[in-house]
Design a protein around this nucleic acid. Structure first.
Lengths: 109, 109
DNA sequence: TTTAATGTTCTATACTTATCGAACATAAAT
DNA sequence: ATTTATGTTCGATAAGTATAGAACATTAAA
């Protein structure tokens, strides 16, 4: 049973969040997570990269404070830290997600 | 008289904007630009890096579509592309700037 | 107890990038 | 015509990072 380290709100930085969201693969993943309102196993979200690469991306998202990861059985369930991010950086994640939904993220860069 | 290339709104991508804003030096520069509501020569904004490094950062901001650069005499005047970005990605730049003003950008990471 | 499912870690690689100093370019001031 | 001010470009470097495959760890299912 793997234990994951999550940054506390104090440790979350704006540049860290922006950097984590600036990768197309990661932003797309976060977009999918936002559509589902529940926790998701990685496998439930289609990704264009290898398993190990996705593991890396999830680590970046987790260490930036964007997602919460929890282990259950063989799967690791991921969810957005929406409320905490809203308190820390009001509107940022929401507007980014809205913008991402309007214009494609994966296709054109 | 140097001529600068600016991306049209169509060419501006969300990930490109986020990436450009994810560097502390650049985000701090954009923050300063937002405070001044006029065009600024680079020199008017204090930066912690060398001249040539700043030139690189400004290029990144320009190519991401965040700033407009114009030459006048020996100085190059920079301003935010606020309206265009607001149309393309509503709220994104504004909320990021607001968040940047609340928590320090340069000091801690 | 194997086997399958799910994900992590390690190693390697290619690419990007933040940084600087030196040299250069241009325009204004002397 | 120098000199000064402002910024760009080039070359180099060190650090970061996105990618994948192979090996491993853990839990569930057969």
């Amino acid at each position: 049973m793997k234990q994951y380290q999550h940054p506390s709100p104090d440790q979350i930085t704006l540049t860290g969040v922006l950097h984590a969201l600036s990768d197309p693969v990661r932003l797309n993943y976060v977009q999918c997570l936002a559509r589902e309102l529940r926790e998701c196993p990685c496998g439930a979200i289609p990704t264009p990269v290898a398993k190990s690469t996705m593991s890396h991306h999830l680590r970046v998202l987790r260490e930036a404070g964007i997602v919460r990861v929890r282990t259950e059985g063989t799967q690791s369930l991921t969810s957005l830290r929406l409320e905490e991010l809203e308190v820390k950086f009001p509107g940022v994640l929401q507007t980014v997600l809205k913008a991402a939904n309007e214009s494609p993220v994966i296709e054109n860069s």
